[in-house]
Amino acid sequence: MINKIVNTVQEALQGIESGMTIMFGGFGLCGIPENSISELVKKQTSNLTCISNNAGVDNFGLGLLLQKKQIKKMISSYVGENAEFERQMLSGELEVELIPQGTLAERCRAAQAGIPAFFTPAGYGTEVAEGKEVREFNGKMHVMEHAFKADFSIVKAWKGDAAGNLVFKGSARNFNPCMCGAAKITIAEVEELVPAGTLDPNQIHIPGIFVQRIFQGEHYEKRIEQRTTRKRA
């Protein structure tokens, strides 16, 4: 067993420097690496290029890094819930690259799987395809997209073990598994870190080979963006 455990979030984030490209797991505020984001705010690491489906809200998630102007560029599919984001984007302080959500996921997966590029029909005939190679397969047009290149990938899982094996919960899985092994170093923060041998190998979502550092996070807030309920009959 190769032990991936690091004891603190500070140790986990060692080597992250200003100007780097970092992937962040999560969809909205669901399944985001809360501890690592807080620590990056404290470290004042700046000029970051962030690959993340969304950009958090004003006072949580990646919004915390935006508030401190630590992000140079966001690569996302949807960024609609954040006033500070909007202000920085409109003033030109923040670069934004919007890409289709399936393409975002596949560019992560391709990086994980050693596939340099792939063809997808998403975005053909739109401004997303401008300047990109297009090709016809089976009578349908496709756009060539490249695997991401990132320095660090930071993901959040429900449970993990010393070997770096991960298990996710509910829809908090989302982009997290796709980003494991998709950067030079993958850091996983988990709600519950257990000894190797505790998790059933049949139930592992991400094998530890894709994870270099794992630590147990603390004080998960797990905010809900849209609390929708129904009345009991």
Binding site: F27, G28, L29, C30, G31, N53, E81, Q101, G102, L104, A105, E106, C108, R109, W158, F168, K169, G170, S171, A172, R173, N174, F175, N176, P177, C178, H205, K222, R223, I224, E225, Q226, R227, T228, T229
Partner: peptide, 28 residues
Amino acid sequence: EDADLINAGKQTITTLAGASFFDSATSF
């Protein structure tokens, strides 16, 4: 409500019998 169980509009939801969860690449 479960913060780990939302839809694409970020609303809290439930699942029905036979439901499954998967990652974003599988979803697309």
